[in-house]
């Protein structure tokens, strides 16, 4: 494997006295889909937030494309080329769909081609195009998830971190979301996918890590993990 696009080394994160991450290390090469699976409260979202600079790790380093970005504020991390589709979608409910998308183009390097990116996003998500003048709060859960993904694309990231993109969505929409993730990857984007839907995410991932109580328990190719007895027992109930 060549130099990793994202490399996390020995990351510790605390909320007060509670330790959320304990020496987490992982790497993602450009062009990969890497899944991080684990139970609720295993630290999956904490890991994404620590990488994004929303939470500040106590120890460890995060390197993106060779640059140490540990402790950078979240707006600089976005500027560096990391996109984030957050848990719970986090759209701006009182802003229109178009305004939400415009906010996605906050990183300065994404501004020059903003119009072209917008056209591409609206083409990719025709539902958003139909509802462009509607307040985002009036969209259905699935449409909001598409908006969150579209908004992230507006920032022209090289790496997208998806945090529980299937949470709370109807099964057909979940399939759609995974299809989109795969398609974005085929178009050249690197993906970090955090999911409790272990089966679906390991199926599309090149590699996966299992996060248990803030630590990396297992790692390997997606198919290998799916065949692993421990994973099958603990997460798939097989």
């Amino acid at each position: 494997m060549s130099e990793a696009l994202l490399r996390v080394d020995g990351l510790d994160l605390y909320y007060g006295d509670a330790q959320a991450l304990d020496g987490v290390s992982l790497e993602i090469a450009a062009g990969e889909i890497v899944a991080i699976v684990g139970a609720n409260g295993a630290g999956k979202s904490s890991l994404i937030r620590a990488i994004h600079g929303i939470e500040r790790p106590a120890r460890g380093t995060v390197r993106f494309d060779g640059t140490d970005i540990t402790g950078w504020p979240s707006h600089r991390v976005c500027e560096a080329g990391i996109g984030h589709v957050a848990e719970g979608r986090q759209v701006f409910p009182n802003l229109t769909v178009l305004e939400n998308l415009e906010m996605g183009a906050t990183p300065r390097r994404a501004r020059a081609a903003e119009r072209q990116t917008l056209e591409r996003v609206l083409e990719m998500f025709p539902r958003l195009a139909e509802r462009r003048r509607q307040a985002a709060g009036t969209l259905s859960g699935g449409e909001q998830q598409m908006l969150a993904i579209g908004r992230c694309l507006m920032g022209q990231p090289r790496l997208i971190m998806f945090d529980e993109p299937s949470l709370g969505l109807a099964p057909t929409i979940v399939q759609e979301v995974f299809r989109i993730v795969r398609r974005l990857n085929e178009e050249g984007l690197t993906i970090l996918l955090v999911e409790q839907n272990v089966m679906a995410s390991l199926k599309i991932a090149h590699r996966g890590y299992v996060l248990e109580n803030g630590r990396i328990g297992l790692s390997g190719a997606g198919g290998e993990l799916l065949a692993n007895d421990r994973v099958r027992q603990a997460y798939l109930g097989l």
Binding site: H52, I54, S74, V77, V85, R151
Partner: peptide, 8 residues
Amino acid sequence: MGALVVGL
């Protein structure tokens, strides 16, 4: 949170 996520 949305604002942090998009990099504002």
